[in-house]
Design a protein around this nucleic acid. Structure first.
Lengths: 165, 165
DNA sequence: TACTAACGTTAGTCAGACGAACGAATGTGA
DNA sequence: TCACATTCGTTCGTCTGACTAACGTTAGTA
């Protein structure tokens, strides 16, 4: 009642995306970034979960594939996974027989993580899967736009990574 | 040729950003998206925390400012905050005297959330703050690039929002 | 009246990012 | 050589955010 009508004619959002929210809010790049990342993460996580994997599994396997055996600390640095969180990731990978964890004879503080044959095969499959998922996430964009997006995001990430490094 | 050869001499990442990880991993748009969003969220959260606020506070205040009083369910739809999470957000805002929660006489299932004078002043300050924080996040990009990024992200968000809507 | 749906709320799950601290091992400087 | 600092793997815990389940109340509808 009384003048202004807040309850009148809200087009009703399709889901939890704030799609029908205020313009100011909706245009904020930081919000768009969060929202886009949420959608992207969800798709990727679901896709990987369907294959009994997680993002971190892929990250670790990709690193091992490219640089060979490494300590957990090194994997942590290369993948961006905190060393405290890496513990369980390596556990999961050893449970699945994809990597092996052995004490480093040269430095007994360390473990050497090595990819197994199964791990290598697994990585190949996951790599294909990831490619498909990336494609699904970027579906609405053309090749040039995807490049553009990747470049812009890289600039952002590089900038902020150095700052608090 | 100069300094970008992975393999034997990894230059040790500055921090938890996976900056020195494998090229394949590092170029993945979904990863860049997550990373960028993480940096962005951190900056925004820290900035708002220093002003005793959170993202959701701003989102709710912005919605009330633009559309006037609303029920919690409506705020949920417009901001994208789940209605279960909105409860505590409204609590925090009422604790700070920024909004008022009153039962809706027209529909006793609902609460009507109304912004107070303090709330309005608060929103103005937060809005300025947010603008500064956005600027900090987008620092490495020029105006045209910021626009481009916002457009691309909007396309992504729109696309995925409709899909699971 | 009986069924259905919306609303606010509580409680809880799950993933990710991150900090604190600790024992074991190693490196370093006096 | 001894003391101190650092690194490593690990456990535990915190915080935010997204999301589900369920429940009592209230409204709308068949």
């Amino acid at each position: 009642m009384s003048s202004s009508e807040p309850g009148t004619a809200p087009p009703a959002a399709p889901r939890m995306d704030g799609r029908t929210g205020p313009a100011r809010l909706q245009g904020l790049p930081t919000r768009l970034l969060s929202l886009a990342a949420t959608h992207s993460d969800r798709l990727v996580n679901e896709g990987l979960a369907a294959a009994d994997a997680r993002k971190w599994h892929y990250a670790v396997l990709a690193t091992l594939e490219e640089s060979g055996p490494a300590s957990q600390a090194e994997l942590s640095r290369r993948t961006g996974i905190y060393r405290s969180d890496l513990v369980s990731v390596i556990n999961e990978l050893t449970d699945r027989g994809l990597v092996e964890r052995a004490p480093d004879p040269a430095d007994r503080r360390r473990n050497v993580i090595t990819m197994t044959e199964r791990g290598r095969a697994r990585f190949a499959r996951l790599d294909t899967l990831i490619t498909e998922l990336e494609d699904e996430v970027l579906a609405p964009l053309g090749p040039a736009e995807r490049d553009q997006l990747a470049r812009l995001l890289t600039r952002l990430v590089d900038h902020h990574a150095r700052r608090d490094g």
